[in-house]
């Protein structure tokens, strides 16, 4: 795991750094404890996307500079704080607007006319997994683990993860991940077709750079057309997932699930219980 960006920053916040080297952008996430996606990360992702010049770059590598992993998912503390403050008349609208912003960011990354490569190590859970699934190609370091633990909180993934996972792998695999909440290791993720390369710990960046350098030799129109053809946005399913997420989020079980997680001092919060 390489903690530093590989070139001078084009854009930088406390959550991430965007850099550009030889036509390849790098989006380095570095918001402790594990790049949780809340308002701050969302602002940063929007800012970074605004600064990507697709006429200059040919690719984007998304990775984490934190030892803890790629991304642990949504910022549950922020969600719990918002929900615990009480549900007034505008609660649903505010939640829906927040979710729309996240979907817009995920959709923008998904459809970038660049080759996007996610480099994953250790934790790739929930919203972090959903972010990884926006990438065209995933490279997993040997210690990567993928999971959708949302059902433990009484919800489903809500950042577009289910349609994107279904776009890439078989429905039985999707159900296994969702219904059990278990983690897949890197080899299992490759076996089911989610990950294209498994590399030793610390080798992900090198592998991603080699990949982006290779694809940069090909005609831009061919690359972009190929991606658009093979990776359509599952618009209807994304909307359906969002609706289910919003409905479930109003259940009391969610408040209780979030409270348990936020207040937990257990050393095993990331293992099923």
């Amino acid at each position: 795991m390489q903690a530093e960006p590989f070139a001078a920053p084009v854009f930088q916040t406390s959550s991430l750094t965007l850099s550009l080297e030889g036509g390849s952008y790098e989006l380095l996430l570095h918001a402790p404890p594990c790049n949780e996606i809340g308002t701050t990360m969302l602002d940063a992702l929007e800012g970074a996307l605004d600064r990507i010049d697709t006429s200059v770059g040919h690719s984007l590598i998304i990775r984490s500079g934190l030892e803890a992993g790629f991304c642990a998912g949504a910022n549950l503390r922020e969600l719990y704080t918002a929900i615990a403050a009480g549900k007034d008349a505008t609660h649903h609208e505010r939640l829906a607007a927040w979710l729309d912003r996240i979907h817009a960011v995920m959709d923008r990354i998904d459809m970038l006319p660049l080759t996007t490569v996610g480099v994953v190590h250790r934790v790739c859970f929930g919203g972090g997994f959903e972010l990884a699934l926006t990438c065209d190609i995933l490279i997993a370091e040997k210690n990567a683990r993928f999971a959708f633990p949302e059902l433990r909180l009484g919800i489903i993934p809500g950042f577009g993860g289910i349609p994107r996972l279904r776009r890439d792998v078989g429905n039985a695999v999707v159900r296994d991940l969702l219904i059990t909440g278990r983690t897949f290791n890197a080899n299992k993720a490759q076996e089911v077709g989610l990950v294209s390369q498994v590399v030793p710990e610390g080798e992900g960046v090198r592998a991603a750079k080699a990949l982006t350098a290779q694809q940069s030799k090909y005609d831009r129109d061919a690359r972009v057309s190929c991606k658009a053809f093979m990776k359509p946005l599952p618009i209807e399913e994304l909307a359906a997932e969002k609706a289910i997420f919003l409905r479930l989020f109003h259940n009391d079980a969610v408040t209780e699930g979030l409270r348990r997680f936020v207040e937990s001092t257990d050393v095993r919060p990331y293992l099923p219980s």
Binding site: A68, G69, R122, V123, K142, N143, R145, T180, G181, R182, T183, N185, A186, N187, K188, D266, V267, R268, P269, Y270, L271, P272, S273
Partner: peptide, 28 residues
């Protein structure tokens, strides 16, 4: 002195070394 994240690293090592797949809910 490990937490659940480090335990998952150990689980990855175990699955690799012993060539097994262990759903982590079986480790409760």
């Amino acid at each position: 002195g490990i937490d659940s994240l480090k335990a998952l690293d150990l689980l990855s090592d175990v699955e690799d070394k012993f060539d097994v797949e262990i759903p982590d809910y079986e480790l409760q």
